[in-house]
Design a protein around this nucleic acid. Sequence first.
DNA 1: GTACGGGTTGACGCTGCGTCAACGTCAAGA
DNA 2: TCTTGACGTTGACGCAGCGTCAACCCGTAC
Lengths: 268, 268
Amino acid sequence: MEALRRDWPIQDIAKLAGTTSRTLRHYDDVGLLKPSRVGSNGYRYYDGDALLALQRILLLRELGLGLPAIAEVFRNQTDTVTALGRHLEWLGQEQERLARQMASVSKTIRTVSTGGDPVAEEMFDGFDHTQYKDEVEERWGKDTYARSDAWWRGMGPAEQQVWKARVAGLGRDWIAAATGGVDPGSAGAQDLARRHVAWLTSIPGTPASDDGGDTRGYVLGLADMYVADPRFAANYGGTAGAAFVRDALRIYAGAHLPGAGSGQGKAE
Amino acid sequence: MEALRRDWPIQDIAKLAGTTSRTLRHYDDVGLLKPSRVGSNGYRYYDGDALLALQRILLLRELGLGLPAIAEVFRNQTDTVTALGRHLEWLGQEQERLARQMASVSKTIRTVSTGGDPVAEEMFDGFDHTQYKDEVEERWGKDTYARSDAWWRGMGPAEQQVWKARVAGLGRDWIAAATGGVDPGSAGAQDLARRHVAWLTSIPGTPASDDGGDTRGYVLGLADMYVADPRFAANYGGTAGAAFVRDALRIYAGAHLPGAGSGQGKAE
DNA sequence: GTACGGGTTGACGCTGCGTCAACGTCAAGA
DNA sequence: TCTTGACGTTGACGCAGCGTCAACCCGTAC
């Protein structure tokens, strides 16, 4: 009987396997599954073996594997079980990610529906002076706090936002540097210190902004506070990050900030 | 002071918000966030309000919302809480999907590592005659079973695969028709019935394949069996689906299959 | 003058096909 | 034989959200 080694046109195979001819042509294009025969007119024909291969491909696809991973399995470069195992791990991570995202979304919904501002919640609000009123008054006097606070309240929300963002950006860069394994004395960290001091200097009412203020003492005092107070340390990724900031600031102060009484060093 | 209504170049804003200038230009392109000002040289500048908007956008993005959804929120066409609520539902569905997929992957890993064939597992194996040996012998005689079985074993695995796939494809189409809410007497269902009979007819050794066999009785008997036996019904999506198949076959037989003794009706 | 750090506008790349578009083939009916 | 219609072919765009060149202009500093 001539029924041996029969093959069928693309549409038939697609229907048999429950997919589309477009998919088959795609698999041909990417080299995943070639037709068992191609007619002189360019028509693709597939035999039983090709169908079997196609079904394996479709099965793996349904399980979520990507075409490159499937191709690896087919070229015997990877064991099916290994590939599936890796994929399973992948799926687990995705689930975790989704779970975290769902938690964040839920939290944001609660925040928003109780009238809160999600942006402020999310951002390191280290710039909100009222949060540290007592500390500021105790260390640098009531006048410092009052002037700084007045300046802050004198701005509109949008302008305040810029300042907050600036702190946030600085914080991000500090964390990146601290976790990046570089040295507090490195050029990158020292540039961060420069930005940090420039930021402090630009806030009216603080000792650093006064031309005759003790910038050095102010900076070093703050640096210690970052490490000592977990509320500050949180802005730099925890105590370890805060320690990195403190060390960088100390080095910077030693090189660029003279002792009390002679204004600031080189700050942008 | 002229510090009011300040704005900043694209790079600065990108850093403040912790993103890239490319992203800002993309948001401009898609109309999600326009610069507050554009210089005569084409440079983009953003003010504090724009920064605030950007931060809200980035926050929503981090939560997984798509840019179109975010744009809706910003055009006040959708409440933030509503959008987030919808998104939360979405995330839940994704998690379920992942969970199902993980279960499938795990099962497949077990199947493969114990030497099983995942493709065969997945496919409706309704064509494996040996599975129903007793029923076949009891209803249509030992000879019918033996001839059919010999024919089946005479094929190679690839050819068998084609037959299995054909049954699977037929099953898929039956299920689609049954759940699609169409009538068993409709043209679509009747065409399925025609295919079904053609399939039965093409299996050597059965009453339907004999020129003088009782095709009508064979088909109607099978139709009843599909409904009565849950192992058969499973091939058609359960008893409800099997009932649909039975009804369609009855109608088809009434119109196209003459009584015992006069061969088959019109079958391809 | 020139070098350098940014700005601009395209346009491709990635994933896996769905979906036209424009055009050959083939079997069947008038 | 011509027509029709179903099916085949090869491009090529589209989608999500930017990353990543590429080619070219701007502004400031040395």
